[in-house]
Structure formats: structure tokens, C-alpha cells
Design a protein around this nucleic acid. Structure first.
Length: 638
DNA sequence: GTAGGGTTAG
């Protein structure tokens, strides 16, 4: 009887004002139409029925309402959502019987507000709910964990729910793990996962992996992964993405291979991470193999942008360009990638041309596009163009210059040797210069051998960051450039005092499916003997073309023979020798470096490209050098 | 009704 009453609410507790007698004949069709529209849409038609329902005093069932809310999240707007919310809270007063806005519906509404980014509305609704269950709490925790800057609140709600006697479930844990921003908190939550026995849940596991990886704790992430019995695709993707993001590209690719061996096929997420790994390590060969898999996702813009970036960062501009032209859609990211890709590869004029094309037929540029544009100007010494774009950013594109753009301008002026202009520019900024700005200025001082200004910039850096060894290194290198050995030594001493070491120069090169690493002055590579032999051969060849070791690039006060020796075994020279001895006819040699290439290696590689008739591409942390027939794409301006 | 993985610059 009770269930019958539930199904026919008009028979239960008839009240004054209830219009059931009149509307009985059409309320069922009304309800069933509404319920059908909630299932399949269209949303506007379903929304249009809400006033009719209210007028007829008909109460929609919670299941339909929840579906309607979902439909609204998918196809509607926040104001549609508010409309539904308004209907639900109003309707609860019109009909007797059980409370209308059931817990289910309220939970859906909270989730809806969160998905529209209206976190405060979500929290307000949550705060006013008469009851809350684990779903309500989890919805809020997930919303806060997903919002940048509100992770602390997510953790607080996670604690509060337990104080309230509500036990977290696997949904809650996988949400809250995204809010664990310190190793301590993560360890505590992990312990709690183990205690309640949810550690075999794949969702919880993948969140755990992701959380460890995001904190840079690869070992713990790997451990959680290795201990898993049943893995799914997302778990594989989590671990691969973690390795790719932490800069262990080789590890990421190895895991990708293992994943395929285990019989999993990749999806867009996997491929994007693997591409990122390839991009980071200049693994063009692997990247091109991934390209073959990408073909079947021709509508995935993210994936295509990643592919585009991979080609740019591997210095393969033809591939990037032809991909860019063939892409079915291009968004602001595709265009920005192309602009900065060209700029970093020393093709500033083309970068600015692409930008012009973007202005006429592409999407509106954003602040990142403008960083690329200014980068193009600064690396080609186009001071006038740089000023023009900087000054007109706001008027032409509605983009207010931010710190990053100011920094580009300091770089532009500094690189062009206008150090006084750069200092003036800094002093006229309407905010305090930060570390990045001072470092940029310091880099320019090093480039133009201005020790006084370098010392000033370094002092400013050390004021902000007393442990900053990079500043001391740059400063001492500047002194060394000028052969002011005692000043250089002072700076080195300060560093040694703080227990710092200069980061060793490292170069990478991909051969087949392997990545070979070379460290300056290190001969542990199995082919070392052959490499040194090849290097000597190259040195003889380029000496005939006029190469003289430029020992001023060895930045320590040593006897000149020792200096030559140190120079000779810079990591990029070892990598170049390895590259030429294993090179394939018609294919460029591609090398990646962790530090900026030194002037001596730069002229050495120029000559090697001539004597061997080989294109050599070296990518350093900020830009690319394409060496071809004795010339470098950077025009010796870097 | 609630949950996990991916892009651009510096």
C-alpha cells in the first residue's frame, strides 16, 4: 500500500489547492514526457516543461531530476542549472508527501555547481543541506581538490566528514589524493587507505601513483604501480605520465613498451604522455612511431598539438609545418606552438609570418602566443618589432603585458646589448623585479661581458634567494670571460662554502630506440675509445678549416694545455663525435644539452657541419642551433 | 547522485 501511495502521490494526503482532480487526466503524460526528455533531451524542451509541472502541482521524480541535471552539465549553462535549482526548491513546497528535494537531487545540484566552476554556490548549497552522506561530502572534496588553490579546504572537508561520522569510500580517497600537496599529508592519507583496506581499488591506486609522481617521488609511485595485480589503462597512463612529467623520458618510453607487451592498447592519454617524453629527450624516432598511432585520433586536438610540439622541439620543422598545415582544426595552442617552435629554432622571421597569418585567419592570440612573438623578436635582435608588439599588445589583442612579457623585453634589450636600456626598463616597471627578471639581466651581462652590472644583478638575486647558485655561477663565468680570475675565484669560493657544485654538462643523442648520454670529461660510454678517435679525426679536419680552440670558454684558471683538454671533452663534442660516426646518410644529427652551448663548441660544430657535409641540430635549454655548411641558424646570436 | 591519466611558455 505504501508503495502504491508513493507511485500515485495525488491519492496520498490530498491537500487544499491540489489540482489533481482536474489535471489527473494529463499529469501522467506530462510526467512521462518530462521524464523522457530528461533522458534524451533536448535540454531546452525539458526545461520548458518545468513551469508546466509546477503549475500542475506535479512533482517530478528524483531520478528524472538527476538526469536532467546531468543533461544540463553536458549541454547547458549555469543559468539553466539555477533554473532547475529554483524549480526544485520551489516545488518542494507545492506538494505534500515526502520531502521533494531528496538527498540524491541535492547531491546532483552540488556537483552541477562545481562542474560549472561555481564552487561557492556548491558550498552554500552543501552547507544548507539537512542531511549529508558520503556522496555529498565526496562531491565537495572532489570539487575543491580539482580547483587550483583550494586544496587545503579539500583536506579540511575530508577531515570534517570523518568527524561527522561519515566514512570515506574509494571515491573520496581518489578525490582527496589529488589535494595532497606535501609528502607528509600524502603519507598520512596513504596510511589511511591501507588501514581501511581500499588499496586494491584501481581508482585509488592510480590516484596514489599520480599523487606521488606529482610530488616527484618516482620511487614510491613506481612501488605502488609494481605492487598492483590488476592494472587498467588509466593506471598505465598515470605511471607513464608521471615519468614523462618528471623528465624521465626514457623511463616513460620503456614503460610504454612494456604496456604494449602486456597487451594493452594505448589511447590518446597514453600517446600524449609518450609524446611529451619524446619531446623532452629529443627522441624523434620514437616520436615518429607514435605519430603512426596518432593517425586514428584525427579529431584529438590535444594529441595533435603534442605531436606538433614534439616535431618543433626535435628541430624537425618540415614535419611540424606539414602537420600544422594538414591538421583538421587548429586552436590557439597549435598556433602558439608553431610561433615559438619556429622562433626557438632560429626562424624568427617565419615565426612572425605565422603570427601575421594567425591574426588574419586564426584564433585570437593569448598571453602565451605573445611570449612566443616577443621571444622571436629577442632572439633575432628585432628590437623595433619587439617594442611594437609589446606596446600594442593591449590595444590590438586586449592582452595586458604581464611579468613574462616584461621579462621578454629585458631579454630583448639585454641580448641586443642595450644593457642600460634594460636597466631603465626594469626601473620603470610598475612592479618589483623578481628573480626571473634579474636572471635575464645577468644572462645578458654575461653575454656582453659587463661584470659591474652582472655583479649588481647577482646581488639582487642573492637578496631574494640567498641559496641561488646559478647567479654565482653566471657571475663567476662573467669574471672568467674577462679573465678577472681573483673575482671569479671569490664567487666560486662562496659557492663551495655553501657546498654547491656546478651542474656537469650533459648531452643526449637518440640512436635506434636508445638514448645515449654523454657527460663532460666522462669516458664511461662503452664506445668511448672509438668516440675519442672520431673526435680526434674531426678536430684534425676542422683545424684544416681554421679551427683554433677558444680556451676562454674554459671558465677556470688553468694552464692553457689543461684548458684545451677540458674543452675537447665537452659533452656536446663527445655527442657530436658519436653522432657523426653513427650517422645515417641524409639524416641530421640531433643532440640535446642541459646547459647552454659554449662558444668554442659552437664554432667547432659549425665547422664539423661543413667538413662532414652534415646537418647537426643541438637543442639547449632555451633554443636550437641548426648547423649546416659552416653556418648556424642562430646567426651566432644567442 | 560522487572518483583516477594528457597540450602550449618560462
Amino acid at each position: 500500500m505504501r508503495s502504491l501511495l508513493k507511485r500515485l502521490p495525488c491519492l496520498a494526503a490530498p491537500r487544499r489547492g491540489c489540482r489533481c482532480l482536474h489535471s489527473h487526466s494529463n499529469r501522467r503524460p506530462l510526467l512521462s514526457t518530462f521524464s523522457r526528455l530528461c533522458d534524451d533531451g533536448p535540454l531546452p524542451a525539458a526545461l520548458a516543461l518545468l513551469p508546466d509541472l509546477a503549475a500542475a502541482g506535479v512533482r517530478a521524480d528524483p531520478v528524472s531530476l538527476c538526469r536532467l541535471i546531468k543533461l544540463c552539465v553536458r549541454h547547458g549553462t549555469a543559468s539553466d542549472g539555477r533554473l532547475i535549482h529554483g524549480h526544485v526548491s520551489g516545488a518542494s513546497n507545492t506538494v505534500g508527501g515526502a520531502p521533494h528535494n531528496s538527498l540524491f537531487v541535492s547531491n546532483s545540484l552540488v556537483s552541477m555547481y562545481a562542474k560549472f566552476g561555481l564552487l561557492d554556490d556548491a558550498l552554500e548549497l552543501f552547507g544548507g543541506m539537512p542531511q549529508r552522506n558520503v556522496v555529498s561530502w565526496t562531491t565537495v572534496v572532489a570539487a575543491l581538490a580539482g580547483a587550483g588553490g583550494r586544496k587545503e579546504e579539500a583536506l579540511r572537508f575530508f577531515v570534517d566528514m570523518q568527524r561527522d561520522g561519515v566514512a570515506p569510500n574509494s571515491y573520496t580517497y581518489s578525490s582527496v589524493l589529488g589535494a595532497c600537496g606535501t609528502p607528509r599529508v600524502l603519507a598520512a592519507v596513504h596510511a589511511s587507505v591501507l588501514k581501511v583496506g581500499l588499496d586494491s581499488d584501481v581508482f585509488v591506486r592510480s590516484s596514489l601513483i599520480d599523487a606521488y609522481m606529482k610530488l616527484g617521488d618516482l620511487d614510491s609511485g613506481r612501488k605502488v604501480f609494481d605492487e598492483m595485480v590488476t592494472r587498467d589503462l588509466v593506471v598505465w597512463n598515470s605511471i607513464i605520465a608521471g615519468f614523462a612529467q618528471s623528465g624521465d623520458g626514457v623511463g616513460a618510453v620503456e614503460l610504454f613498451m612494456r604496456m604494449k607487451e602486456s597487451g594493452f592498447s594505448s589511447n590518446q592519454g597514453t600517446l600524449t604522455s609518450v609524446l611529451r617524453a619524446c619531446t623532452g629527450m629529443v627522441m624523434l624516432e620514437v616520436g615518429m612511431q607514435v605519430h603512426a598511432h596518432v593517425l586514428k585520433y584525427d579529431r584529438d586536438l590535444i594529441l595533435h598539438n603534442a605531436l606538433l610540439d614534439m616535431y618543433c622541439k626535435c628541430g624537425s620543422l618540415q614535419d611540424a609545418d606539414s602537420l600544422f598545415k594538414r591538421m583538421p582544426q587548429r586552436d590557439v595552442i597549435s598556433w602558439s606552438t608553431m610561433v615559438s617552435g619556429l622562433a626557438q629554432n632560429g626562424r624568427s622571421t617565419e615565426a612572425l609570418k605565422v603570427f601575421d597569418l594567425m591574426r588574419s585567419e586564426g584564433p585570437a592570440p593569448n598571453r602565451i602566443t605573445m611570449v612566443g612573438v616577443l621571444f622571436a623578436c629577442s632572439h633575432a635582435g628585432l628590437v623595433g618589432d619587439g617594442w611594437y608588439y609589446f606596446r600594442s599588445m593591449e590595444k590590438l589583442f586586449g592582452i595586458q603585458p604581464e611579468r613574462e612579457h616584461f621579462n621578454c623585453m629585458v631579454d630583448l634589450l639585454g641580448r641586443a646589448g642595450k644593457l642600460d636600456g634594460a636597466v631603465k626598463f626594469i626601473s620603470e616597471m610598475n612592479f618589483e623585479p623578481d628573480l626571473v627578471i634579474w636572471r635575464t639581466l645577468l644572462g645578458a651581462c654575461r653575454m656582453h661581458k659587463n661584470a659591474n652590472l652582472a655583479a649588481y644583478a647577482a646581488r639582487e638575486i642573492l637578496k631574494l634567494e640567498p641559496e641561488d647558485q646559478g647567479a654565482r655561477i653566471l657571475l663567476s663565468n662573467t669574471y672568467a670571460d674577462l679573465r678577472q680570475w681573483s673575482d671569479a675565484e671569490k664567487s666560486w669560493k662562496a659557492m663551495r662554502h655553501q657546498g654547491a657544485k656546478k651542474e656537469p654538462g650533459r648531452s643526449w643523442i637518440e640512436l635506434g630506440k636508445q638514448v645515449h648520454v654523454f657527460i663532460a670529461g666522462d669516458f664511461s660510454h662503452p664506445c668511448s675509445a672509438g668516440i675519442v678517435q672520431e673526435l680526434n679525426r674531426l678536430i684534425r679536419r676542422v683545424t684544416d678549416l681554421g679551427y683554433v680552440p677558444q680556451t676562454e670558454f674554459v671558465l677556470q684558471d688553468l694552464e692553457s694545455e689543461q684548458k684545451e683538454d677540458l674543452l675537447k671533452y665537452h659533452s656536446e663534442k663527445l655527442a657530436v663525435a658519436f653522432g657523426t660516426m653513427n650517422s645515417v646518410e641524409g639524416k641530421p644529427v640531433r643532440i640535446m644539452k642541459n646547459l647552454r652551448i659554449c662558444g668554442d663548441c659552437h664554432s667547432f660544430v659549425k665547422l664539423v657541419s661543413k667538413s662532414e657535409g652534415k646537418v647537426i641540430i643541438i637543442r639547449d635549454p632555451v633554443r636550437f642551433h641548426h648547423f649546416h655548411d659552416g653556418v648556424c641558424s642562430c646567426g651566432d646570436y644567442w
